[in-house]
Design a protein around this nucleic acid. Structure first.
Lengths: 351, 351
DNA sequence: ATTAAGAATGAAAACGTTTTTAGCAAAATT
DNA sequence: AATTTTGCTAAAAACGTTTTCATTCTTAAT
């Protein structure tokens, strides 16, 4: 770990000068400031939060106290973390994370461990993180052998849901998922697809590749503008429109639509309703995740319910164990039970 | 701030002994350990995170990296915080917070500022926090004069929604809210009620107190068990049941139900549907918050949409300003625009 | 009774900063 | 020419811990 001392030595000045130069408080010749800045950058120097926090008046932390339930998973993580006397620092990441440098609190040696929730990390990131601290992944991603992972059995759950569809008499099942910019992100989508294929194979059927509907990702920031009062351009709806369009063009239509997740499923439901396509009736529709449990009148969407709260609990627990007792084996795959929630959207209309 | 030194002085031992005694690493006579522990407790001593972090190998922090959008508000806060190089520490609180001691990271002098989101703080808490660091409240709570608050104009928005109901021809409006254990929590509920009263007054009507439906709070932890697959005991439904029961007993029924928030409204919608009560038709129903934008088929609930994302942005921005420039006046009430989202649940059936 | 061993304790170093103090040169003032 | 100011820099103190090392006090063994 490079400290201010290293920068000072390298620049052949005192550490006080480095501190002044970097903080920009003045009192240092400009040319020297520039040189020091340059050296600091070259050495990848980041001020130590605790040295600074100890001496200075600033900690670099903000405490957010809240009562509204964010998500079940976060709730679970916080419950364990707070009772075990850990703070949770938060950081947003892309779904696919390839640059270890982006994990600021880690580069600053400010954390004892990392939980990745619903983030697909590259080997590069895994290497960088794991050599520094223990890490735990929540969600079904690439399972690096040296770290723990908490997930449901995605293939099995998809298989169960597909079996349910088959039980309802559907033999032509479509599978809808979003095309991702990076190949690797297909992983989870294809794991679920395998579940569908397996269920069909069990009944002597084969998945028809024409029914593999890869939907284009849309860029929408409308979720950031709820006050616009207009939800016609929500991502879900844009996806639903794509699906409806694709289906419309088909001569030989499927009878069931298995959506990669609930957002896609809701998009389909709404767009279908708009076009007068009946669910169930014209299509059975199901999703994955079990989100939005509070729905209008009567929830109709069948979905695979993931135990997010439990996943959060288990994730935090596992990580804290790994932090506090490095001798315990880290490399487990902890599989929690998912659940089918069968509602009207996949029930036969004749029953 | 009491440090290990104070404890050592008080106990008439060296700081090393105190450190050993408190960490429980052994090497200290038991009677001495007990005495030191007692003194530490009496002095309210909490080890300094940065001293410990600087010397030791442990920081007491966990980094949660995630990509799933938690809530719009958190999203907004994180966006500002991360670009301004602040970490967000998270802590769950009751909706009503009366004990400053419960805010651990604050007592440890680990934060530069505090955001209270949807938390009603007592004067005691306000005093304790504000003497230590700047604070910002998000949501319409008691506005302490020394700190900033970010909110929509709850009375005005409720008034607008009530006007809409009146426009639809409703003259008997019921108001549903949850009875809170602490009197103070009535505040926001009554602010919205005032909006309704004002709208009615504008038309020469008076709010009928028989239609003021105070619902008993239910304790349910079922939201923590989504994998149970059963959502029949969700809080929202229990509330909906209470409302339906109350209405059933009335001889002179209202025609519109103004719910304090969307959760109550959804509960009503689902319970009404179950009992064959039509919305709209038998009752118009509206909520407040604009949550659950992704709903099935077609969202039908009218609601006041709050700009949570913007509130998060503004909250973080305001706090950071207060932290970095103590000379700026803190005591503003920042009112952001809300929005009516009018859907089927409040539209006249004749149109 | 003397010594050896072991347990308990204190002193001091170290962690990485920021800030205060002090020093020195160069420039400006008398 | 002597003094004061100014601008820059280094040295050192301080923040609050934990841990290492040295020391003292017990206790047991010779």
């Amino acid at each position: 770990m490079t400290s201010i001392k290293d920068v000072a030595t390298m620049a052949d000045v005192s550490i006080s000068t480095v501190s002044r130069a970097l903080s920009g408080r003045g009192g240092v010749r400009q040319e020297k400031v520039d040189r020091i800045r340059q050296i600091a950058k070259a050495l990848n120097y980041e001020p130590n939060v605790f040295g600074r926090g100890l001496r200075g008046s600033k900690t670099g932390n903000i405490l957010l106290v809240f009562s509204r339930l964010m998500t079940d998973c976060l709730q679970g993580i916080l419950e364990i973390a707070n009772t075990s006397d850990y703070n949770i620092l938060m950081q947003i990441s892309d779904h696919i994370l390839d640059d270890p440098q982006k994990i600021k609190p880690l580069t600053r040696k400010q954390v004892d461990g990392v939980i990745f929730q619903d983030v697909l990390i590259s080997p590069k990131v895994y290497a960088a993180v794991s050599e520094a601290v223990p890490l735990v992944q929540i969600g079904d991603h690439v399972h690096y052998p040296g770290s723990d992972i908490i997930t449901v059995d995605n293939k099995e759950m998809a298989c169960q849901m597909a079996r349910h569809l088959l039980d309802q008499g559907h033999t032509s099942i479509a599978y809808v998922y979003i095309k991702n910019p990076t190949e690797k992100a297909y992983r989870l989508a294809s794991v679920r697809e395998q579940g569908i294929r397996q269920a069909m194979a069990e009944r002597g059927l084969t998945f028809d590749d024409r029914y593999r509907l890869e939907i284009e990702q849309v860029e929408s920031e409308d979720h950031l503008k709820p006050w616009a009062g207009d939800d016609d351009s929500q991502p879900a709806l844009l996806y639903g429109r794509q699906v409806a369009d694709r289906l419309e063009k088909m001569t030989d239509k499927p009878t069931a639509i298995f959506c990669y997740n609930d957002m896609l499923a809701y998009g389909c439901l709404r767009e279908f309703a708009r076009r007068g396509i009946r669910v169930p009736g014209d299509y059975a529709v199901c999703g994955f995740d079990g989100l939005y449990p509070l729905a209008e009148s009567e929830p109709i969407l069948s979905s695979v319910v993931q135990p997010f709260y439990k996943m959060g609990l288990e994730g935090a627990r596992t990580l804290i164990t790994a932090i506090e007792d490095p001798s315990v084996f880290s490399g487990r795959k902890i599989i929690l039970d998912g659940n089918l929630r069968i509602k009207k959207s996949t029930q036969s209309t004749t029953g």
